[in-house]
Amino acid sequence: MIELTVNGRKHNVDVEPEMPLLWVLRDVLDVKGPKFGCGIAQCGACTVHLNGEPVRSCSVPVSAAANHKVLTIEGLAQRGQLHPVQKAWIDHEVPQCGYCQSGQIMAAVALLAKNRDPSDQDIDAAMTNICRCGTYARIRTAIHAAAKTLKSTKA
C-alpha cells in the first residue's frame, strides 16, 4: 500500500511502485484533470504539483509521491474561489480545445508562487508545456494579468 495525499485527501493505493503517478491519479483515483499527451515528460499535459513543485506525473513513479502532497487542477480553487490564474484564463479566453490547459495552469501557478512578477523571459523559461492549438500568446497575457491580481490582493 502506498499512501498519498491528493488535493488534501489521503488515499491508500495498492499498485506497483513503478506505476506512474499520472495513471494512479487517472485510473485508480478517478482524478481526470491531469491529462496524458506523450508519456515521456515532453508535453506537460500531466503536470501536477508534488509538494508545491510542478512535476510531469507521467514520468514520476507513484512511489516517489508516497507520503507526499499532490495537487491537481481539481484542488486549485479554494472554498469555491477560483485561483487568480484560473480567473485570468477565463478573462482572456485562453483555452481552445483545452486539453493541455490543466497542465498549463498548474505550470503557471507554480511559476507565480516562486516569482510574483515574472518577465517575458521568466515565462519563456518556465512555460515549456506543449499546446497543439497554439494558445501561447494568451497564456503569456493571462500570466501577466494573474501576476497583477496576485500583487494587488497580497499587497
Partner: peptide, 16 residues
C-alpha cells in the same frame, strides 16, 4: 461572445 466551454476547462471539469 465568451466561449461556453471554457469555464469547465479551467477547473479540470471538461470531459474528453
Amino acid at each position: 461572445v465568451k466561449r461556453i466551454d471554457i469555464p469547465d476547462t479551467v477547473v479540470g471539469r471538461q470531459r474528453y
